[in-house]
Design a protein around this nucleic acid. Structure first.
Length: 417
RNA sequence: GUGGGUGUAGUUCAAUGGCAGAGCACUGGAUUGUGGUUCCAGGCGUUGUGGGUUCGAGCCCCAUCACCCACCCCA
């Protein structure tokens, strides 16, 4: 083999396409039941869109973006996430002025240059929801409810919702300072990664996996104590709406979003059985993003989930997913004349939407029967010299082995009813 | 970007430095037109790739690529 698939990517082969189709269909159905409409944006955008919105020094921008120049020297990037493009489309198409098209969902591939691992790929598929245009805490709960309804529709059991509020920009800033204050005395004892985090993203100090760093966490200040009046009230309301919707959650002050544009509500869905990459979806409110990329100041909230991790979680719980479709009918024709007489039947079946199979390379009767069997078709239609003379067909049920002779009309009648 | 593990037939896996094998799957057959079970036969291959050590390398060494696991990050 001279050519190989790029690192961190994979092919979805026919035997797996059924389950992908299924999880996408269910997401569509659930999102639409909440009144959300699909939006599809390009897989690449101006690189600056992501640099601005995700934050210049976020990991995504710093080392994970696939950037390229086009023939005229313009700088583009394969999208590493879905929110910024949707917001760009919202602003660019003046969707705020065109009625109520502000409940949006999307699905598609995202790209991040990252070391592949279980549940982590360089091209991966996400689904997401964006609600644009209100700071009402009801919508925070609604967006979370969509994801919960989706997981429920799929039958996923062992999943945990964790929520937090990171406050507005000024709360967050105050909290970062408080954290730095607290951690300053321990700085020499922290792991090298945490020493960096202390400067770049203090709240990441809270979810370090090194044990010697974790001991400081217990007495660290909580973001929730650094929310201003409005932000605290907002978070209280979000929880009230979740409670009223019957959605169970855990408040985890360590929940942090990776991208810079998040404010207030942050949440994550965690499946512990998945190992290191156990977060199957995450999202939050991003009231600052839209004005940041040139729209008028507009609050919004959304989330994104990863299909790969979702499928892993479903498989971990042995939830049955669709496989490949099996033929209903397998046609067996012995001899050239029979073959030609079989074709009208074959095409009529297919015109009625019936999956009917036939293989002209198998010539002997035995080989065709074997092929019919391994195709796992429900029925075989047999046309040999005898039937040809009589002008009828044998319809054989391959499960029960029962068979009967039928005219072409009766045969079609029977199979299409 | 860092660390550990693994690369042999389509697939799952064997082979002390000394002739590359087994199961499953696949294809054909077991006398006239009936599949699954059984039996027989058949291709299974540049041992991931490139170097090196050796009389001799699937096995030892180096490099490289890919996958798996973890760090990091996140979906």
């Amino acid at each position: 083999m001279d050519y190989r698939i790029p690192r961190g990517t994979y092919d979805i082969l026919p035997e797996n396409s059924g389950k992908w189709q299924y999880v996408k269909d269910v997401f569509r159905r659930v999102a639409e039941s909440f009144g959300y409409f699909e939006i599809t944006t390009p897989v690449f955008e101006m690189a600056e869109l992501f640099e601005r919105s995700s934050g210049e020094n976020s990991d995504v921008v710093q080392k994970e973006m696939y950037r390229f120049m086009d023939q005229k020297g313009r700088s583009f990037a394969l999208r590493p996430e879905g929110t910024a493009p949707v917001v760009r489309a919202y602003v660019e198409n003046h969707m705020d002025k065109s009625g109520s098209r502000n409940k949006l969902y999307y699905m598609g591939p995202m790209f991040r240059y990252d070391r592949p691992q279980a549940g982590r790929y360089r091209q991966f598929y996400q689904y997401g929801i964006e609600f644009i245009g209100s700071n009402h805490p009801y919508y925070d709960a609604e967006v979370i409810a969509i994801e919960m309804a989706y997981l429920k529709a799929l039958g996923l059991q062992n999943v945990r919702l964790e929520i937090n509020s990171v406050g507005c920009a000024s709360c967050a800033k105050e909290y970062d300072l408080a954290l730095q204050d607290y951690y300053r005395q321990f700085l020499p004892e922290l792991c090298p990664d945490c020493q960096k985090r202390y400067e770049t993203k203090p709240r990441r100090l809270l979810d370090c996996k090194v044990k010697t760093c974790q001991v400081f966490r217990t007495d660290a200040p909580s973001q929730l104590d650094y929310l201003d009046e409005d932000c605290r009230e907002h978070f209280t309301q979000v929880r009230a709406y979740l409670d009223a919707s019957g959605i169970k959650y855990l408040v985890n002050p360590a929940i942090v979003r990776g991208l810079d544009y998040y404010t207030n509500t942050a949440f994550e869905l965690i499946v512990d059985a998945l190992g290191a990459q156990k977060s199957i979806a995450g999202g939050g409110r991003y009231n600052a993003l839209i004005s940041q990329i040139g729209g008028k100041d507009t609050p919004a909230i959304g989330f994104a989930g990863g299909f790969e991790r979702l499928l892993l979680a479903l498989e971990k719980e042995s939830i049955p997913l669709p496989g490949i479709t099996l033929p209903k009918v397998y046609c067996i024709a012995i001899g050239d004349e029979a073959q030609m007489s079989m074709l009208p039947i074959l095409s009529k079946l297919r015109q009625s939407g019936i999956y009917a199979d036939y293989n002209p390379d198998k010539t002997s009767f035995k080989a065709q029967m074997k092929a019919a069997d391994s195709s796992r078709a429900e029925f075989a239609i047999i046309l040999g010299e005898d039937e040809l003379k009589q002008g009828d067909f044998i319809l054989k049920n391959l499960m029960t082995s029962e068979q009967e002779r039928l005219s072409a009309e009766d045969l079609l009648q029977r199979l299409t009813q």
